Amino acid sequence: MIIHGARPSPFVRKVIVFAAEKGISIEVRPAGFGRGDPAFMQASPFGKMPALEDGDFLISDSTAIITYMDALHPEPNLIPTEPKARARTIWYEEFGDTIAQAAGAQLFFNRVVGKALKMPHDPALADTAEAEKMPPLYDYLESVLPDSGWLVEDRFTLADIAAACPLINVCYCSKGLTGERWPKVVAWLEKIRARPSFADAMTQEAAILAKMAA
Rank of each mutant, 00 (worst) to 15 (best):
E21H: 13
T81Y: 03
G149H: 07
A105N: 10
L141M: 14
I90L: 12
G23H: 11
P183F: 09
P50Y: 14
L78V: 13
P38D: 11
W182I: 07
A129W: 03
A85H: 07
E82C: 07
V12F: 14
I24C: 09
Y140R: 04
P76M: 07
G32K: 01
F57M: 12
P123D: 02
P74F: 13
P45R: 10
Q204R: 11
L145P: 01
Q204G: 05
E27D: 14
I3S: 06
A162Y: 12
C171L: 12
V28E: 11
A6H: 10
I26W: 09
E153H: 08
L72R: 13
T67G: 05
A87G: 11
F57W: 14
G55F: 13
A105L: 07
S174F: 11
P50V: 15
A64D: 00
R181M: 08
A71E: 12
V17L: 00
I192S: 05
E93L: 01
Q101T: 13
M212Y: 06
R111N: 02
Q204I: 15
G179Y: 09
A71S: 06
D56M: 12
A103R: 01
A194V: 06
E130K: 05
I66V: 14
R29L: 15
P45I: 15
A124G: 03
L209P: 03
E75M: 08
I59F: 02
S60P: 00
D54N: 10
V113R: 00
Q204P: 01
V17F: 06
R29M: 14
R7V: 08
A64H: 01
E205N: 09
R88P: 01
A51D: 09
V28G: 03
A207N: 00
G47F: 05
M134A: 02
L137Y: 06
P74V: 14
T157Q: 08
K133G: 00
K133A: 11
G96S: 04
A87V: 15
P183H: 04
S62W: 04
Y68D: 03
D97Y: 09
A100F: 06
P10K: 12
A201S: 14
A100H: 01
N77W: 11
A20T: 07
V113M: 01
F109I: 11
G23C: 08
A194K: 09
P146E: 12
A214I: 05
G55D: 04
A64V: 08
I90M: 11
R155G: 10
R13Y: 08
I99A: 08
D56K: 12
R193Q: 06
V28C: 10
A64F: 03
K14S: 04
K22V: 15
L177M: 02
C171R: 10
G34R: 08
A206M: 07
L209M: 13
L125V: 15
T81A: 13
G36D: 08
P120G: 07
E75T: 14
A71P: 00
M202C: 06
I2L: 10
R86E: 00
I26N: 01
I24H: 08
L167G: 01
M134V: 03
V144W: 07
P76S: 07
F156V: 03
C171D: 05
R88E: 14
F156C: 08
A201P: 00
D122G: 10
P136E: 06
